[in-house]
Design a protein around this nucleic acid. Structure first.
Lengths: 240, 240
DNA sequence: GCGGCGCTTCGGCGCCCGCCGAAGCGTCCG
DNA sequence: CGGACGCTTCGGCGGGCGCCGAAGCGCCGC
């Protein structure tokens, strides 16, 4: 095979990048950014390719250990291997140009608007609502962006008040900045971002729209976010 | 052309990933991780391809805004567009499998050993020495890894004592973890990592070996790193 | 046990893209 | 001013890879 250009050795960047260099595989990964496990056929339908094609792509992604799989009966479930992979994909997405052609159909446009409003980004919140929450946290002195993102002492106290305990013990950063591809602005990710999102689900602040990544802020959520962060209803309700 | 699979829209991940999905282009980026500007022919020779091929690759990388170029007379200098790109490449490299075939020739092996010992990684220090410094900083309570990397109050004081002032005002994280592809262990990057590396150069602690990314720790440097961090000579001198 | 369904394997097709060498252009230097 | 040098453009070649449909396999439910 190609023993050609191995002049300069080092990590084999290309073989990882190649996995994401195909539109269909990239679409799979973007879909899996919702943090859930999808079946092979779901992904195939999602991207409009044959089942056999999807199988080949999934084989590649799994053997490249970007995805992990779990077999259940006649189903093959896959999900992102770990938060590092999600982070990598987010970074790549942030660097990518916004796609020139906005969706054509009316339903696609509505779906996109819902996503732009509020959605999960792997395990934290993104979209207009995600950014608004990050901004509010910053304005109230709970987050500090100067010289790198940092959770302030008040921020830690605020989390404790709400009984939100980020998973610790791992090397995962407590707070991390994630660039939003709709808002083009950074918002809160990392262990704290994930814990906050988890809390929002369990406390009924937000609910998923169907089985998509899009979420809506419930009445309870609007009240809570107003009380705890002073967020007005306008930014929490999707404009129709 | 291919209006085929645009079923699910979003950021065009694939077009960025494709830039890094080629061995030669990836090699260029890895070389440029030294943070310096290279000419087109230097890169071509480095990867063993024709000048015309290098031109085409550089056009792609520049128009994809991973690289920026600067024309000087008959030379075309390119470098990584910004620290975000460097970070992306580092993340990708950390995820990539170590290349199965270690370099064959004797000189290549020596070069690799020098790199494994101490080198620059874009703008901070990596290799055994880089990891040792990070470990020493941690052991002395200047860095805290629990629940995400953080510079402690003692850490800030330590920097001030040494007159090291990280560039601030930018959104760049002060401290960031970077996974080393030789040591397979995280070490210090980010604005503080860069400032520390800059200081090491200007204070004469380290010098470049020729024009490569590899560096050696000088006698002055060994003394300073022993005084300030308690690092023993053994880890600072390359074993021959 | 039989049909349906999800997934996989395999051939084959076609396009994309990375490579080169030859020729040409602009810059620098003697 | 002429030659060397760095870079670019272009045509052409070859291999890799993403796609499909047909056939096959295994699990499930009736």
């Amino acid at each position: 095979m190609s023993t050609r250009h191995t002049r300069a050795s080092g990590p084999d960047l290309a073989c990882v990048a190649r996995l994401l260099a195909d539109g269909t595989r990239a679409g799979f990964c973007l879909a899996l950014l919702d943090g859930r496990a999808w079946t092979a056929t779901e992904l195939a339908r999602h991207m409009g390719v044959a089942a056999s094609t999807a199988t080949e792509h999934l084989n590649a992604l799994v053997s490249g250990s970007l995805l992990v799989e779990e077999r259940q009966g006649r189903h093959r479930y896959v999900r992102l291997a770990d938060p590092h992979v999600a982070e990598l994909i987010e970074n790549l997405a942030a660097m990518a140009p916004a796609r020139p052609t906005p969706p054509r159909s009316l339903s696609a446009a509505g779906r996109r608007r819902a996503l732009a409003h509020a959605r999960t980004c792997y395990d934290h919140l993104a979209g207009a609502v995600g950014v608004a929450i990050s901004d509010a946290l910053t304005a109230r002195g709970l987050l500090d962006w100067d010289g790198g993102l940092r959770l302030t002492a008040q921020g830690e106290a605020w989390l404790q008040d709400l009984d939100i305990a980020p998973t610790t013990g791992t090397r995962r950063p407590a707070v991390r900045s994630c660039l939003d591809w709709t808002e083009r602005r950074p918002h809160l990710a990392g262990a704290v971002g994930a814990a906050l999102c988890r809390h929002a689900f369990t406390a009924g602040w937000i609910t998923r729209i169907g089985t998509t990544r899009a979420v809506t802020v419930t009445a309870v959520g609007r009240q809570a976010l107003h009380d705890h962060l002073g967020l007005p209803d306008e930014v929490l309700q999707q404009q129709l």
